[in-house]
Amino acid sequence: MSDVATLITREAVIAETSGETVGARRRQPRRPTEESPTIRWTLIGVAVALLVVFLLLPLVAVFAEALRRGLDPVIDALTDPDGLAAIKLTLLVAAISVPANLVFGVAAAWAVAKYEFKGKAFLITLIDLPFSVSPVVAGLVYVLLYSTSHGWFGPVLNGLGLQVIFAVPGIVLATIFVTFPFVARELIPLMEEQGTTDEEAALSLGAGGFRTFWMVTLPNVKWALLYGVLLCNARAMGEFGAVSVVSGHIRGLTNTMPLHVEILYNEYEFVAAFAVASVLALLALVTLGLKSLLEWRYGDELAAGRRH
């Protein structure tokens, strides 16, 4: 606490103990860097009200619309063959794209954080690039490359009999693109903060490179890694725009859960659409819960910007 504040509090205590305040309990004098309680509670009230209307109400609406006719239609929508296929495809896509970006994130963070080389800042900018590209543009660029009719590699793919666009590989690629920076951007600032002394100690004690990474570096960043994977996974399972462009919306084959939501909604199957949506909303809630837990419990072991 600052000196001025201590002084003021002390005066207040002296005033109180010397019996200056007879009767009603004396109010703590307001510090000059604080707002009056009226203003404070008004600001809190306005912020909470706005957040409830803008953020929470949409979330509540998802569950309310899904359960409008009870639980049975929800279960029907989720056990429907197309619904099940969508759930399976979403899990498959996440199971490929998350580990791929995890390996990339670790490699990128190792190169960027443990060494000094030219063009490093530029490399970091490039790694963050996918976040500033529209998901639809992300989908489009893969169509321009891999479409069998119009793509650059179209003739080659035709020759090999491979289909990327309107098939699972395209969905995986588009998902990897939009979730590209998640793990790297959690690890890079943290590993830069941690420096190289731990690794140098391990190496000087005779550990090999891989062992140093496995026994020293990885334990140091494990919570940040988990944090990045969590965010990466949420986006991978929920991505809509990029996947929508490359998927072709073939029911039971190239339909992920978010795309299935769209199809059901456009067919006026509102309850079914909100049923699938509520599963995705639950995933978002679990992600937020775990993320907050990591921030509170292991805040010190996350990158500086993540400590609350």
Partner: peptide, 9 residues
Amino acid sequence: LPFALPTAV
């Protein structure tokens, strides 16, 4: 929440 909630939802 807007980061975590899929955009279609």
